[in-house]
């Protein structure tokens, strides 16, 4: 195993992040503050408590997940798309680095970045609502699994995309609707039965539900179901990535 090679890729990707630290952090923090002002202070004050939790505190896990998902996807997709676009991918392909080592470097860096952003948003939210984390270990587990899974998903998009438009379209058309309809801002139990059933096909529901449970033990589905579904999605992404590398899809002619 070429650990140095993995470290080289990881380091390079992280350096890119730290070079633009201001931009990387300011925009997610500002959007989180806006959500808290609108949903927490303005509208939230008129919404009754959900399972004994104030609306402001209820949306914290959803907001963290929202950023974690979008950041993971955009970091990882850009990370692998850019070398393909600029041609520097030749070096990765001609180096003694296996496909899985490449994934480890790129996806590891993307997941690290989005984890950092997720934690900063969590810290930001502590200024607006009293934070209580009932199960810190579970919280970390869900954070990690989500960051890794969606970084893998982003990596797939970065491999698939053959233009900057395609790089934007999946996050816009798939990730954003899934997160907004995935119970980030409401418990899916309040939906009519039909939409409730539809929601159960949304993988984000399980992530948000499990993550929220680790904060205040309020959840839409059992934490084990959440964990299992996250595992399934992770496995699907892993399988797709390894298929792509085996066939050389979009990487090699």
């Amino acid at each position: 195993m070429n650990l140095r090679g993995v470290w080289a890729i990881y380091n390079y990707e992280m350096a890119r992040f730290f070079r633009t630290l201001g931009q990387s952090l300011i925009s997610p923090v500002i959007s989180t503050v806006l959500y808290f002002v609108v949903f927490g202070a303005a509208i939230g004050s008129r919404i009754q408590n959900i399972d004994g939790v104030s609306y402001g505190a209820f949306i914290v896990p959803g907001l963290v997940m929202l950023s974690l998902l979008t950041q993971s996807v955009s970091n990882a997709s850009f990370g692998i798309y850019f070398p393909r676009f600029s041609g520097t991918i030749y070096e990765y392909l001609s180096a003694p680095v296996s496909p899985m080592e490449m994934v480890l470097g790129f996806v590891g860096a993307a997941a690290s970045k989005s984890l950092l952003i997720g934690l900063i948003i969590l810290a930001t939210s502590a200024f607006f609502v009293p934070l209580q984390i009932a199960h810190p270990v579970w919280m970390v587990v869900f954070l990690l699994l989500t960051a890794i899974t969606f970084s893998l998903f982003g990596f797939l998009i970065g491999l698939w995309a053959d233009g900057f438009e395609k790089l934007q379209i999946i996050p816009l058309l798939v990730i954003t609707p899934l997160t907004f309809l995935g119970g980030s801002f409401y418990p899916i139990g309040i939906l009519p039965p039909f939409w409730h059933t539809v929601s159960l096909f949304n993988p984000v529901v399980y992530l948000v539900s499990g993550f929220r449970w680790s904060f205040n033990e309020v959840s839409d589905v059992s934490v084990w179901v959440s964990l299992a579904m996250t595992g399934v999605f992770l496995a699907v992404c892993l399988a797709a990535v390894s298929w792509m590398f085996r066939t050389g899809y979009r990487l090699k002619n």
């Binding site: 070429n2 890119r16 680095v97």
Partner: peptide, 16 residues
């Protein structure tokens, strides 16, 4: 965006 030294050091590391 990289410096000459950094990009060469990266290449060496990538090759283990």
């Amino acid at each position: 965006f990289e410096s000459v030294w950094d990009t060469c050091a990266f290449s060496r590391m990538l090759f283990g």
